[in-house]
Amino acid sequence: MSVATPSVRSLSGLVARPGTASTAVSAPVKIDVDRMNFYYGAKRALDGISIQIRANLVTAFIGPSGCGKSTFLRSLNRMNDIIPGTRVEGTVLIDGQDIYTPGVDVVELRRRVGMVFQKSNPFPKSIFENVAYGLRINNMARSKAELNDRVEESLRQAAIFDEVKDRLHESALALSGGQQQRLCIARALAIRPEILLMDEPASALDPIATQRIEELIYDLKKTYTIVIVTHNMQQAARVSDHTAFFWLGRLVEYDRTDRIFTAPAEKLTEDYVTGRCG
C-alpha cells in the first residue's frame, strides 16, 4: 500500500487504488486511520475503516443517513468520548501520533482539531464573546488588544465580519441561521486548529447561505485540512477534492471526487451517486 495513494478497504477487502498525476495525491497524509471499529455499547457502528486524509485538501464523507459518516467524523477529535458506552478499536493517527493511546490530552487534541456542527450552536452570549471563548480558555491571547485582533481576524476569515462589526457585543442568538453558522466557524478558527471537521454545516441553511459557506470552505483549505460530512452530493462534488462513500458502517470507496462521481469502481457507489439507492 503506497503512502501517496488514497487507499480503500471495501466490502470485499483491501482495494488499493493507483494514484493519478494530480496535485491532490502528492499532498502529505494528515490523518491516517487503520482498521478502525467503533461500538455503541455492543452494537458495532463502524467496521474496519481505513483511510488516509491529506493535508490542505477538502475531503467529503457521503452516504445515506445512519451509515456512520458522522460517527466517524466525531471520532477524529474524540467527540464521541462524551457519549457513555462507546468504544474504539484500531488506530487513528494525526501527524503520525495515535490519538487514542492512553495519555493523550483530549483537550489539546480538540484544540488542534476544530469542529463545526450540523445545527449551529452559538453560546447564548455576545458575538464577540462567542469567538473569544476558545481564546480565553486556552490562554491564547496575552492582552486585550491581541484578543480583539484575533476575534476580528477570525470573523474576517469566516466572512462574517462586515455583517456584524457594528454589533459585536449584541447577542449571537439574534443572528440569522447562516450568520450563526459562520459565527461558529469563526469561533472554531479563532483557536487556529490544523484540521477543521464540519458535520453537515449547511444542512439547515437556505441556498444563499449555503453558497457562502461553500465559498468559505474553498478559501479555508489553503490554511486548514478540512473534512466535511454531507448528505448533499452536489455539495460534495462542488467543494471537495476527495470523497469517501460510507454504507452501513463501512467505507465502500475513497477516491478523487471527480472519479467517485464519474467513474466509481464499486457498483454500490455508482448506485448511490446516481440516485438509485439510499
Binding site: V107, N121, F123, Y133, I137, N138, C184
Partner: peptide, 13 residues
C-alpha cells in the same frame, strides 16, 4: 447538548 459539544470542540475542559 449542542452547547456542551460546541465548547468541547474548542478544546475546553
Amino acid at each position: 447538548g449542542s452547547i456542551r459539544e460546541g465548547s468541547y470542540a474548542l478544546g475546553a475542559t
